[in-house]
Amino acid sequence: MARKQPMELFMPPNMLKAKVGGGKGGIDLAAMERAEAAMEELKSEFSDWIAEDVKKLTAARARYAATPDADARANLLRGAHDIKGQAPTYNYPLIARVAASLARMIGELPSTAAIPLSLIDAHVTAIQVIHKNAMKDSGNKTAQTLCAELDARVNEVLAANGP
């Protein structure tokens, strides 16, 4: 029978609660309203932000195409991963979906397996087109078909290189 590891369990003093003034605490609705208002003001910058992220991904794709080494691969993954996480905030859910598909392919493929450049290009081009046409409606049928097709191609690549 395996011997249990010694374990020490303790509660550090809650200095943070004292710093914020103690009291009952909990959700501060007024602070949330202020934050929502601040987010609304930021929205005017979102179109520039998504444009910069798409540009960065395009550059990462070019770098990987020129030199498909581990650094370029990691850079491409970071670009896709960033867009996946941030595009919904910028009101581009379709871009987030395509970026998630690209990030999944790069992230789940064994590092020894080459990433098909044609499939990277299909994802990057789709993101560029969605952005250029400002397609923000996640219900867009054409875009949904495209996303499903990309998902299917990624599944094929992952299955071919699976364990």
Binding site: P6, F10, N14
Partner: peptide, 20 residues
């Protein structure tokens, strides 16, 4: 963001030390 901040302030978890 508010919910997680409230959590770390109001309901901090105890800390654990084991060999690993």
């Amino acid at each position: 963001m508010m919910s997680r901040l409230v959590s770390v302030i109001e309901q901090p978890r105890p800390y654990v030390r084991t060999g690993v």
